[in-house]
Amino acid sequence: MKDTTQNSASSPVIEARNLQLVFSTNDGPVQALKDVNLTINKGDFVSFIGPSGCGKTTFLRAIAALEHPTGGTLTVNGMTPDEARRKRAYGYVFQAAGLYPWRTIAGNIRLPLEIMGFSKADQDARIARVLELVELSGFGKKFPWQLSGGMQQRASIARALAFDADILLMDEPFGALDEIVRDRLNEEVLKLWARTGKTIGFVTHSIPEAVYLSTKIVVMSPRPGRITDVIDSPLPKERPLDIRDSKEFIEISHRVREGLRAGHSDE
């Protein structure tokens, strides 16, 4: 409880006001986001959940300046997303790890550091630190194909952490993994979040995953993509896996499910 109140008192990192995003396609315009209003504060762990096509990915990509809104305002650290990107405000983790097969794990983590012009010694220090953070120390010299899918995804998180962005955006990072691996990675992500104090945006299809991880759950619905509910989680920051059997957890899960159902019956 204490954590959430403290978080909401701190400064907004991402702010969307009446955000619109329309794709013009060959079959006419597609409204991917409509009137999206959301404030994400420093240190928040925000999950986006909703049926396929409701604009979760589009919203995350807009924050990362990979898509450009057609209306409303969107600021990241008080800047436009483009400016924020140039200031290295965020790291982005895609659904697939997307490691370069011709680079070792350490080489893959080195990629953003090379592009951003860090010194060689600094690069090495950072690689060692993030490898330790995702519990892959000792795997730096391995090539991606020598690692399991879960380890590859952890390496890709390390890559996004290496240049010390304050915001970590993750689009279904564990979507392709089995549930047991997923549980463990979720625990690790929580630990990582606690240790680094980053602001995290996390897209998922799984209600338990969203409730387990987040301080704030954003429920979205499709056609047009919009936010139907924003739930501030009362769960403590410290979350063992068995918190998922607690009364609060089940209550929040229920509210998320209701929100998803309401979005559907709107049509």
């Binding site: 300046a65 990979l66 965020y90 982005y92 895609f94 697939a96 997307g98 592009i115």
Partner: peptide
């Protein structure tokens, strides 16, 4: 596209 997007998030130049 994903690999190109990844480099875009690093603001990589065309040469890079």
């Amino acid at each position: 596209q994903m690999q190109l997007d990844l480099l875009a998030t690093y603001s990589a130049s065309k040469a890079q």
